[in-house]
């Protein structure tokens, strides 16, 4: 019962994220909505694996967590530098010695 309540709560939260992602108004709202939507998806899949008795679903939840991270970095880099190719820190700079 608690699991079902958790799934229902997540669905409500995801619907709210979709409202923010669709309405905007700025792109940052959308990025934030998409990112936390990914987190909610990870939780939903983990709960669904328990609900349907399929622990293997956790593999897919893990993939989501990893992919969501990389996508968010790509988005932030797009905004900050307008380039996917440049490094985030300059080699040989004050903080580039260990990089």
């Amino acid at each position: 019962m608690l699991i079902v309540a958790g799934v229902a709560g997540l669905i409500v939260a995801m619907s709210l994220m979709i409202v923010r992602a669709v309405l905007g108004p700025s792109h940052y709202d959308r990025i934030l909505a998409a990112n936390s939507f990914g987190t909610k998806t990870v939780l939903l899949i983990a709960l669904m694996g328990y609900l349907f008795g399929r622990p293997a679903f956790l593999d897919i939840a893990l993939v989501y967590a990893l992919i969501n991270f990389v996508t968010t970095i790509a988005l932030m880099k797009f905004f900050r530098y307008r380039s996917l190719a440049r490094p985030l820190a300059v080699a040989g700079g004050e903080d580039g010695a260990d990089g």
Binding site: M14, M17, I18, A21, V22, G24, H27, R30, I31, A33, A34, F37, G38, T41, L44, I45, M48, F52, R54, A56, F57, D59, I60, Y64, T71, L75, F78
Partner: peptide, 24 residues
Amino acid sequence: LAAILLMSVYSLVSATWLMVMDAP
């Protein structure tokens, strides 16, 4: 850009839906 963001959310939802259909 908004379309790309919404498409990525779309594919998260559709993948979750495929999980409900038991097609991991």
